[in-house]
């Protein structure tokens, strides 16, 4: 599904990703862990198409397509979703409005009919209930004045509505209380199927007790330095990154 080969990325002449490789097959859940500043969010943002990051070398293929050729909105329509580490506040744009526009853009891309207001309303309310999100959040401006946990839940809510093929969750667990963590994990688990993959970026093994990954990768200084199964996360939790 996703193949990242020898990816080099720089910002302002500073190299951040230094030969990154990762291959994700359909249905798999990969976790990326690593110290602060190692480049995890950079990878996530590059996958979503952020222009400030310059790809100097390497390639990214997504479902057979050259991802680097696509604009951010095309990537989204092709099925990539990024849950931001720091969701952006957009005052004046209602959450529900953004989501309907986003969903309908995706449907239009697939040459499907746009959803009617009522249909969308029902869909949104059902998913919100499951995530324990207050319905008022729909009417409020995107992330504006949301608490840290509300922002993260809102990202997962958007993911559920947009039903991506590959979801990249960048520290979606940080800032969540224990109950919210379970709710978010359930939200992810309920979407797991043989055609959908996840890249879960986290600092804590705790999340991986709920979202059990197929692979765990350790990222240090812009590269994957070790990969393994879920037990690797436990090992990191005990020993830290000193060995790398």
């Amino acid at each position: 599904m996703l193949e990242v080969k020898n990816l080099h990325v720089q910002v302002d002449d500073k190299e951040i990703l230094k030969g990154m490789n990762i291959t994700v097959a359909p249905g798999e859940v990969h976790s990326i862990m690593g110290p602060n500043g190692s480049g995890k969010s950079t990878l996530a943002q590059v996958l979503a198409g952020k222009e400030t990051y310059e790809v100097t070398e390497g390639e990214i293929t997504f479902q057979g397509k050259d991802l680097l050729d696509l604009e951010p909105e095309e990537r989204a329509c092709e099925g990539i979703f990024l849950a931001f580490q720091y969701p952006v506040e957009i005052p004046g744009v209602a959450n529900t409005y953004l989501l309907r526009e986003a969903l309908n853009a995706k449907r239009e891309y697939r040459e499907e009919k746009p959803l009617k207001h009522v249909e969308f309303g029902k869909l949104a309310r059902d998913k919100m209930k499951a995530l324990g999100i207050d319905e008022n959040l729909l009417k409020r401006s995107v992330n504006a004045g949301f608490s840290g946990g509300e922002k993260k839940r809102n990202e997962i809510f958007q993911m559920q509505i947009l039903e991506p093929t590959l979801a990249v969750l960048d520290e979606t667990d940080s800032g969540l209380d224990i109950d919210a963590l379970k709710i978010v994990a359930n939200g992810v688990n309920s979407m797991r199927d043989s055609g959908r993959s996840f890249i879960v970026i986290t600092h804590y093994q705790r999340l991986l007790n709920y979202i059990v990954p197929d692979f765990v990768h350790v990222m240090v200084d812009g590269k994957i330095v070790k990969s393994g199964g879920k037990e690797l996360a436990q090992e990191l939790e005990e020993k830290g990154y000193a060995d790398f």
């Binding site: 951010p72 909105e73 989204a76 957009i90 891309y109 947009l162």
Partner: peptide, 22 residues
């Protein structure tokens, strides 16, 4: 904010209109 909107599938043109409208 524009990137956030585009990352959800909204075109750049539409994203700008959304921001201007807000």
């Amino acid at each position: 904010a524009l990137f956030y909107l585009c990352s959800r599938g909204v075109s750049m043109r539409k994203a700008k209109i959304i921001m201007l409208r807000a």
